[in-house]
């Protein structure tokens, strides 16, 4: 996937200016930036939920091969976990019995076997997030777009789900564009991290390749010698962005 010179305005206000980035096959790319920098807007423009004022988004795969996961993803409350996972398969024309069997297999893969008959109201936050993940991944996407999908989870659940995700992404060679404000998460998961400047008129200011080898154990990734220096650099650059902005405001 390639984003070229993308600009985006919101009610006349420029939000993003000339953003370009590229995600190669099987690459995991994160986009970090101060809150309000337009990270989510960029993602929504990539999906086509916002119309860019300039620039282009090019996908090499079909729209049906793109999976999307948002922070506040909602499952259908009136459908069981299994039915929820089978939903997209049904939209793709899969026969119902087969879709349900496939859904059950995906639930099992995320440690939810036996919970297929439960309604979302009877699942914990982490379980719901796993169902949402299974719902998207059951469609075998070649490209995954995520907007802070794990922000609402507590640290332990979050770490476990991230590990499950990273294993799957590595095995299936899924390309990922992941928007987050969590720098450590970005480094641990990604091949490349992009820094978006303080909005409005945000643009990508830096690229950071992550030299940690794959397959990754996320806990060990934190202990890799390259991790700490990279985090420090990212942190410094991000702070400078925020400072520049507050100085501009003061002026």
């Amino acid at each position: 996937m390639r984003v070229r010179d993308l600009s985006l305005s919101y009610g006349g206000e420029p939000v993003l200016v000339g953003v370009s980035l590229q995600v190669g096959k099987g690459q995991y790319v994160s986009l970090v930036g101060p809150s309000g920098s337009g990270k989510s807007s960029l993602l929504r423009a990539v999906i086509g939920l916002h119309k860019p004022s300039a620039g282009r988004v090019e996908f090499e795969c079909a729209p049906a091969d793109v999976g999307i996961l948002f922070q506040d993803d909602a499952l259908l409350p009136w459908r069981t976990a299994r039915d929820n996972v089978a939903l997209g398969l049904g939209f793709r024309g899969m026969e119902r019995g087969k879709a349900l069997a496939e859904a059950e297999a995906w639930l099992a893969r995320f440690g939810l076997s036996g919970l297929g008959d439960r309604y979302p109201s009877r699942l914990s936050g982490g379980q719901r997030k796993r169902v949402a993940l299974a719902q998207v991944l059951a469609l075998k996407p070649k490209f995954l777009l995520m907007d802070e999908p794990f922000a609402s989870l507590d640290a332990i659940v979050r770490a476990r789900i991230s590990q499950e995700l990273v294993e799957l992404v590595e095995r299936e060679r899924i390309s990922v564009l992941h928007v987050t404000h969590d720098l450590e998460e970005a480094i641990a998961l990604s091949d490349t991290v992009h820094l978006l400047s303080q909005g409005p008129r945000a643009r990508i200011t830096q690229h950071y390749p992550v030299p940690i080898p794959r397959p990754r154990q996320l806990v060990r990734a934190h202990m890799h010698p390259a991790f700490a220096p990279l985090l420090e650099r990212l942190w410094r650059d991000l702070s400078r962005e925020v400072d520049t902005d507050s100085r501009a405001e003061a002026a």
Binding site: L87, F91, L139
Partner: peptide, 26 residues
């Protein structure tokens, strides 16, 4: 109606009839 549910159905590839059946009707 919950916009998140509508977006979910759309991003999973559901069409208008899917929206009606899975979101609006329930």
């Amino acid at each position: 109606v919950d916009r998140r549910l509508v977006e979910r159905i759309v991003t999973l590839g559901g069409d208008r009839s899917a929206l009606l059946r899975h979101v609006y009707l329930p």
